[in-house]
Write a protein that binds this DNA or RNA. Structure first.
Length: 274
DNA sequence: CTTGTACCCTGACCGC
DNA sequence: TGCGGTCAGGGTACAA
């Protein structure tokens, strides 16, 4: 479900609510969200009594940094969501609660995940560092168009697929890949290595602009994604091509097409994008 | 190394 | 109303 802007929105919501809170108890309702080959009760033993230092993000991972060198790594995949309550935003569709973390202020952190593709993994700081080292750079961090050009160098894979590869570039997913390529006027089928430095500059600018704008809009809500409060994002109203197959291109008025790449939909205007 | 495919899982939607 | 097929902001394991 969530790409960088959505995960970052959730991170910013959770951080002030969780800092300094201690986990008093937890309940796992769906054991398959506990990763790392441990049982839910072992998972509970590792986390009970731990205190949240901060909530951070890397790529599409949400990280609960706890005391005693403990990192709770979470990935929401397609349908994972968090809420904090005494009560749940029940009307917002929390009907598949997978885990509850009872906090020392009387509130509870809820994790809901219809498809249960998301999960939690308990790591040490060093173990997490090894995971993080395998991820590509953060596009909104110190990241130049030259860095992007080097990522693309000699790759024959379609540029769209490369943008989605988290080992090469972190945080971009299916929506924002299509949106950035449209704005940069680059065809998603182009071999990544064929981009000129001018095209890499355009794409660099587009990726950063789309992600920043989406972040300012609190993300894109198409189905399941919600902020921690239950509020929808707003960027779905500003998408130019994603999900708009058959509609007119906002630039040239030709018809927006949908194609399939690496088993996933890409949306483009083949007249504007070359 | 690179690239493509199957798979994980549930629910919404569409055509018949 | 039911049934089958398709699709969905994700990543991984494995094959070629």
């Amino acid at each position: 479900m969530p790409e960088l802007p959505e995960v970052e929105t959730i991170r910013a919501d959770l951080d002030p609510l969780l800092q300094g809170r201690r986990i008093e108890g937890l309940r796992i309702h769906k054991p398959d969200i506990v990763l790392g080959g441990i049982t839910p009760s072992e998972f509970g033993r590792l986390l009970r009594g731990r205190t949240f230092l901060r909530v951070s993000r890397r790529a599409k991972y949400l990280l609960f940094e706890l005391d005693r060198d403990t990192v709770l790594q979470t990935h929401l995949r397609m349908t994972g969501r968090f809420a904090i309550g005494p009560s749940l935003p029940g009307e917002a569709g929390f009907r598949h609660i997978a885990a509850e973390f009872r906090l020392d202020d009387g509130r509870t952190l809820f994790y809901d995940d219809v498809r249960r593709l998301g999960g939690f993994l308990v790591l040490s700081g060093e173990e997490w560092a090894r995971v993080a080292a395998r991820l590509g750079p953060e596009p909104l961090g110190r990241f130049s168009s030259g860095d992007l050009l080097r990522i693309f160098h000699n790759l024959r894979a379609p540029i769209k697929n490369v943008l989605l590869d988290q080992r090469r570039l972190a945080g971009v997913g299916n929506i924002y890949a299509s949106e950035a390529l449209f704005r940069a006027e680059i065809d998603p089928r182009r071999p990544a290595g064929s981009l000129t430095s001018e095209e890499a500059r355009r794409l660099h600018r587009s990726v950063r602009r789309v992600l920043r704008e989406a972040l300012r809009s609190s993300g894109t809500t198409l189905r399941d994604y919600r902020a921690v409060s239950g509020a929808s994002g707003q960027y779905q109203n500003r998408l130019r091509v994603y999900g708009r197959e058959g509609e007119k291109c906002p630039r040239c008025r030709k018809t927006i097409e949908r194609i399939v790449q690496a088993g996933r939909s890409s949306f483009l205007c083949s007249s504007c994008q070359n």
